[in-house]
């Protein structure tokens, strides 16, 4: 932190999978780069009193190989397992995926859906902030120059609760989400939805939570497939009203709105099925 405070042009990095291509692409070299992986708490995975603490600088390949994380947060782990190639997953981290501040970051929607907090350290000590408040626009975060994220606090899902993530890309691997959707669903003993969170990527300048999702889905028995059911139309309308997508080479705004509805539905179905399986 002293280094960061004393060097206004300094940057922190973990996996460097975004930083190095940016430098190669002609962006000015930072005056100094600080490797966060050498700070022990950025590499720890621990669970205490119903809260998981997952280090910000852990490579995705370590997260996907972690049995406890994979059973507890299947959606978050499947998102980490979709980032780039095996080579990229050997380096890419949750902290970097968040702070690179791409609207299409795969691991951010599940973190938001899970209600995760970022643990942020800076000259003033440690603070925490909801992951949803860290990114404020494409490439921009709310962190101060001398602050960085050491890890994430993720509440353990209660019994009857689970998550899922899916994204659409034009090929099967090695691409950036055209749309991503995370869902977290809690069901009661009868398999009826009690609470839901749906969070979308790549349809707005930052990831967006579909605020109306919980109200629409609560009390419903989520079917095992996403066949037609009137409340899916309601969810679809809520999804579209949250989207503010752009046209780009990966897809048109209209295409993104449609795909977002499909993926929201699919991830709700998957999360609800996983949630019932925990009962």
């Amino acid at each position: 932190m002293e280094l960061l405070s004393a060097n206004p042009g300094a940057a922190v990095f973990a996996g460097a999978t975004d930083l190095i291509p940016q430098i190669q692409g002609g962006r000015p070299e930072p005056s100094l780069v600080v490797d966060l992986k050498r700070i022990p708490e950025t590499s720890r995975i621990e669970a205490h009193n119903g809260v998981w603490r997952v280090g910000a600088a852990i490579p995705a390949a370590v997260l996907t190989a972690h049995a406890g994380l994979s059973t507890t947060f299947p959606g978050l782990v499947e998102a980490a397992g979709l980032i780039g190639s095996d080579q990229i997953q050997g380096r890419a981290t949750l902290g970097g995926n968040l702070c690179n501040a791409s609207p299409a970051a795969d691991s951010v929607p599940p973190l938001v859906a899970l209600g995760a907090d970022a643990i942020i350290v800076g000259p003033g000590g440690e603070r925490s902030a909801p992951v949803s408040e860290v990114v404020i626009g494409p490439g921009a975060t709310s962190l101060d120059q001398a602050e960085f994220i050491t890890g994430f606090r993720i509440p353990s899902p209660s019994q009857g609760s689970s998550d899922a993530y899916e994204r659409f890309i034009p090929r099967t691997e090695m691409d950036i989400a055209v749309v991503g959707s995370a869902a977290r669903i809690r069901v009661d003993g009868d398999g009826r939805c009690e609470e839901a969170s749906v969070v979308l990527a790549a349809v707005a300048p930052t990831v967006v939570e579909v605020g109306a999702a919980s109200g629409i889905l609560a009390g419903r028995v989520i079917p095992t497939d996403s066949a037609r059911d009137p409340f899916w139309d309601e969810l679809g309308e809520a999804v579209v009203s949250c989207c503010n997508p752009i046209d780009d080479k990966r897809g048109t705004a209209e295409f993104r709105r449609r795909v977002a509805q499909v993926l929201a539905r699919r991830t709700v179905v998957t999360a609800a099925r996983r949630a019932r399986e925990t009962l």
């Binding site: 996996g15 460097a16 190095i20 095996d86 050997g90 380096r91």
Partner: peptide, 26 residues
């Protein structure tokens, strides 16, 4: 040189990585 092609793959502490995306001092 940007992590897309894998030609520079090496194994670093047991993890497959692109050596073009690793700083030497790391």
């Amino acid at each position: 040189g940007t992590g897309d092609c894998g030609a520079c793959s090496v194994i670093l502490d047991g993890q497959l990585v692109c050596s073009c995306l690793v700083f030497g001092p790391e």
